[in-house]
């Protein structure tokens, strides 16, 4: 049972009425900003599923570019695996699935799945040591050296993206697409998957330009796309954006509201710890009670 946006808002509105304890949930300047088009000048990718032919060349490029178990080039020629629902995992940062086929649609429809690189990533908010970070350039990156392996990021991710190297007794890593951060930031190149895409299903660029490109496409080809650019507002916006002609849920893009996922926990945390006033106030209050009890005792004797 998942929460829809309306329920979620109802919760956040109704909850505080329930308990005085909820007085510790004030809005805070530290909490995530409201959904906006932050990171609009950062990098992003527009995925146009209507141009995807399911060739798996993005998977191959990803496999070559990243520190995952190397696979033979020929393995990626097997297109039959796309008809089985696959998810990214510790061995593949991205996978392509067939999400619709004739007779429902004239042509088979494919969608690539990978980390969405949220503007307000829940994984990074959850991470106990800051191993996961939203870079100003757009990518959400992972620093294995810091990681303690608690897997709270996996609990937090609304897209269920991070995989884990459970088989390793030593140095297991959280495994997810890093948007080829080194490559795009330092080398000025496109991500490996985008570079390998033969059919312009993937467009790399500034998020702002990608948004307007998406809207131009929708206007230019009426009926081709659903009237929704997925990732524009979802969970406060994502660096990766999706256009599709069929239900997004089938492309492993769950229906999500526009509030950043970690907004509530950050509000609670920063409310409870606002300048350390609430904990110190509790400490002082308990101290006063203790002192009054003891003085009462002495007075009584």
């Amino acid at each position: 049972m998942s929460l829809r946006r309306r329920d979620f808002l109802k919760l956040t509105a109704a909850g505080p009425v329930a308990f005085a304890a909820a007085a510790t949930l004030p809005t805070s300047a530290h909490a995530s900003p409201a959904p906006d088009n932050a990171f609009d000048d950062a990098y992003g990718v527009l995925v146009d599923t209507t141009f995807c032919i399911g060739c798996r060349k993005c998977e191959w490029g990803c496999n070559e570019a990243n520190d995952v178990p190397r696979r033979a080039r020929t393995e990626f020629d097997d297109k039959s695996v796309t008809t089985v629902h696959r998810r990214p995992d510790a061995t593949a940062y991205t996978v392509v699935n067939q999400i619709a086929a004739p007779p429902e649609t004239p042509q088979p429809v494919y969608a690539k799945v990978q980390c969405m690189h949220c503007n307000h990533p829940a994984c990074a908010s959850a991470c106990i040591v800051g191993a996961l970070r939203k870079q100003p350039e757009g990518p959400v990156t992972y620093d294995a050296w810091k990681c303690i392996g608690c897997r709270y990021c996996m609990v937090a991710c609304p897209f269920q993206i991070p995989g884990y190297e459970y088989a390793k007794a030593l140095q297991p890593r959280v495994m997810k697409c890093g948007f080829c951060a080194e490559r795009i930031i330092k080398e000025g190149r496109k991500p490996a998957c985008v570079e390998n895409c033969p059919n312009e299903a993937l467009t790399f660029g500034r998020r702002r330009e990608l948004r307007s490109l998406a809207h131009q496409k929708a206007v230019a080809s009426p009926g081709r796309y659903l009237d929704h650019l997925y990732g524009e507002t979802e969970v406060g916006g994502t660096s990766w954006l999706y256009l599709t002609g069929v239900d997004f849920a089938r492309a492993d893009l769950p229906p999500l509201g526009s509030r950043p996922v970690p907004e509530l926990t950050e509000k609670i945390q920063h409310g409870v710890f606002k300048n350390f006033v609430p904990p110190l106030a509790l400490f002082g209050l308990l101290g006063l009670v203790m002192a009054s009890q003891h003085s009462g005792e002495n007075g009584g004797k």
């Binding site: 040591v129 800051g130 303690i148 297991p172 950050e266 945390q269």
Partner: peptide, 27 residues
């Protein structure tokens, strides 16, 4: 449960403090 249990002390290092993380506070 921790994959890298030998890093359990990492949250003590100020360079890794992460004030948004509920788990950091719990830890």
């Amino acid at each position: 449960d921790l994959g890298r249990w030998y890093n359990v002390w990492h949250p003590i290092l100020p360079s890794m403090w992460q004030g948004n993380s509920v788990l950091f506070e719990v830890g």
